[in-house]
Design a protein around this nucleic acid. Sequence first.
DNA 1: CGAACACTTGACAGCCCTCAACGTGAGTGG
DNA 2: CCACTCACGTTGAGGGCTGTCAAGTGTTCG
Lengths: 250, 250
Amino acid sequence: MNRPLFPKQDVLTLSDDGDELRFCTTCAFSQACLSEGMNKAALMDLHVLVEHIGPFHAGDYVFREGDPFEAIAAVRAGTVKTFVVDRDGNEHVLGFHLPGEVIGLNAIDGDSYPCNAVALDTVMLCRFSFPKMAVLAGRVPGLQAQLFRLLSRDIGRAALLAGDWSADQRMAAFLIAFSRRLSERGFSPRRFQLTMARTDIANYLRLAPETVSRVLRRFDEEGLLRVDRRDVELLDRDALTALAAPVLRE
Amino acid sequence: MNRPLFPKQDVLTLSDDGDELRFCTTCAFSQACLSEGMNKAALMDLHVLVEHIGPFHAGDYVFREGDPFEAIAAVRAGTVKTFVVDRDGNEHVLGFHLPGEVIGLNAIDGDSYPCNAVALDTVMLCRFSFPKMAVLAGRVPGLQAQLFRLLSRDIGRAALLAGDWSADQRMAAFLIAFSRRLSERGFSPRRFQLTMARTDIANYLRLAPETVSRVLRRFDEEGLLRVDRRDVELLDRDALTALAAPVLRE
DNA sequence: CGAACACTTGACAGCCCTCAACGTGAGTGG
DNA sequence: CCACTCACGTTGAGGGCTGTCAAGTGTTCG
């Protein structure tokens, strides 16, 4: 199944969580929603703005490059990969997006998505019509500020891997950052599963897939971690963090 | 002179341009200002928000990493370099900012600037208090949309040089992009002066300074351009554009 | 069971970084 | 006016990291 499922006519709108209090507590907007600055009326406004869509399955496109831009979306469950394909057919992975993170922000400048987004496993999304959200942001300062923050954060994040780091540094930074993001969402920071292929990691880190394999194997041999297929256990977190430090600017 | 000049107490506020109609026509906010969506009252609100500060001279800091974030600024004249310095003392150039472009956007997520900004030549700025601007953006949809666009655009721009391009491709992309930005501001796209040192270009493109020298010399020998110190004349724009195409995604 | 795909492993080459030395131009002070 | 200094830029030699090519292994899925 490779057709885009993001257009509104294909949306499966779920009725309700059945639990108002736990409304997207892991979501990137929760900070805005739950801050004292947003009253109940505004929260309801945002609530009715949301469409819960999915599930998407591994390989499903959330949106494609060139699709008209209408909405941003927060990941509720699963992993989304965003990427572009150059004229030679090479894939450039822009990022992997975990639950609570927002996709589509880089489309705001322009009228169409500048990249593709596919599900890597089973994905559930919260879809926000951007025009409606922008109007609401004008009335709710907390929401506007949160949108500004999310956008600004992505600028810094995009610049992280732009440096001329070694393959070891890039790999360590990827693992540590991935582990931290999982930890923030309640998953184990020590032991986790990579939801993406080696090739995806390579295209994200700007390395050859063979280099990703070799670095992981060497990290394993050196006792930094234990890797079996897509299962990873970080054994020497300090050493990995030290390797990643310059990339993560610490 | 290396002390920061951005803090408000050091600001030299110029009285007025003396020409309301030409109020920052090259500025990044002009699209918001001049669009039909913004009425005269809103335009005046934005106008009184602005402080014209400067001049800064080559080497002056506009702000330093860690300074409290209070304002963004649009370049009126000159060139500003933004950069970070890692713990080993290596400088990483984030960007060069020409008249009409905005600096400080990546500071919105956080309470302090995440990078340094220095003037490369004589620089004049328009300073916008960000808290005040955010309030105004809540009342003026056109301004909010413009801020969203500027932020979103920077996300894409930061990702441009993140690819694993060759030194030739990076250099060509830098020259073509620089030429285009100059052209948009009324300068010659064919013949211009590089306002930054070779080392700055190298730290921006993630190359060694020696590589920058060598590539420029070879481009000169091959007839793609003519370079004399910091003066550049693009001779074969098509060839350079072709080289830069994958980097600029064309 | 077979095919497609993901991943691994090895050999080799090339690009670019590092190190070093030299050239050049602007500013300074005599 | 000239010598000096210093930063910037250029040029050359050598080596290391990582990409490319190739072949092989293992796994999943039809």
